[in-house]
């Protein structure tokens, strides 16, 4: 078989596995950040009810913590986008 035939045969299979990988990557990759960010939000609510006067500092810390947690989901998104346009 010459190179063209091999590419014709293998190409769709490679693309199919890349697409499956994209789906699994984004699906599993968003479980952790979702739970983690919600946990941060819940604990921030608790903290505000304990110390309402420290509200602005709690709010800022929650947002920074969630932004860092978000980076995991963004990694998954970037990899999934690369794979789905493979």
């Amino acid at each position: 078989m010459n190179e063209e035939t091999v590419k014709l045969l293998i190409g769709p299979i490679t693309q199919a596995f890349a697409l499956l990988g994209a789906g699994i990557c984004m699906g599993l990759g968003s479980i952790g950040p979702g739970i983690g960010e919600g946990f941060a939000a819940g604990k921030a609510c608790e903290a505000v009810s304990r110390r309402p006067e420290e509200y602005s500092q709690i709010f800022r810390t929650m947002l920074v913590g969630q932004a860092v947690t978000e980076s995991c989901a963004i990694y998954a998104l970037v990899v999934a986008l690369i794979l789905s346009f493979h």
Binding site: L19, G23, P33, G34, I35, G36, G38
Partner: peptide, 23 residues
Amino acid sequence: AAGLAMGFGAIGSSLGIAYAGGM
């Protein structure tokens, strides 16, 4: 892949938002 991505992707956020709502 579309089914797997959205199916598993919905689990984490729902649980996280639920924890925040309860708290």
